[in-house]
Amino acid sequence: MKVATVFEQMLDREHVYPFMQGGPHRNIDVSHNVLLYLEGISVSFDGFRAINDLNLYINDGELRCIIGPNGAGKTTMMDIITGKTTPDSGSAWFGQSINLLALDEPAIAQAGIGRKFQKPTVFEFLSVVENLELSMEGDRGLWSIISSKLTGEQRDHLDKVADMIGLAEQRALRAGSLSHGQKQWLEIGMLLMQRPRLLLVDEPVAGMTHQEMDRTAELLISLAGEHSVVVVEHDMDFVRNLAGRDRTVTVLHQGSVLAEGTMEQVQNNRKVVEVYLGE
């Protein structure tokens, strides 16, 4: 962090320091029913504008699908929300009170944002249970890592999640020996163990069979409500399935929002058709 920023924060009487915010998502203020605010965000790499004045709002408990052609900035947007990339300008807030740009990846994760990577990333050397256990919400300090023991309630939660992702029978297996689709689910399960308020899911059905896809859609839909879920996906059938009639779909193009609305509205939007089919 730059010295100037630190100094600015010291002079700002309203500033809330990350260390004063307490543990996992204790005070996410969603009084306006909006969980995630991205406003005026821009970022460029080597002169290439990956994100260009992006504005996006995700409501509490919403399931939102984000589509867009290659290079539209979908993954970069997730990088910004989760703290991997710092934008050149703009602001990102989680609820009313948490400034995401002031936090790093672990802090954002503990604030209640879970992220699934494009390529399924699990701890292959560890068993399914160990994967889930490691992701369990709780204090991540070095000392508590050394000393902590699972409580009964945590064990129940773990069993529930293992059931939910359909891996209850494989719990003792090494994660590395799971099939591709199972790894995708395990990763989603690991997110759920964190009890996040917001789930960012990057291309969850890549490499899945149709049955697996349907089950994944079911799973994601069932998660909405209790969690907000943002799904980035290429597969149109899957998105149609997820979005149903009345959920919002956002189309990204060249780093900003091209259109937003129900699946039907978006599909009939002239600009969207142009982008997808060419002029």
Partner: peptide, 16 residues
């Protein structure tokens, strides 16, 4: 082991 095999995953589930 988690850090060794998938450092960014570990980071994104909240480990420092």
């Amino acid at each position: 082991v988690a850090v060794r095999d998938a450092e960014s995953r570990a980071r994104f589930i909240g480990y420092r």
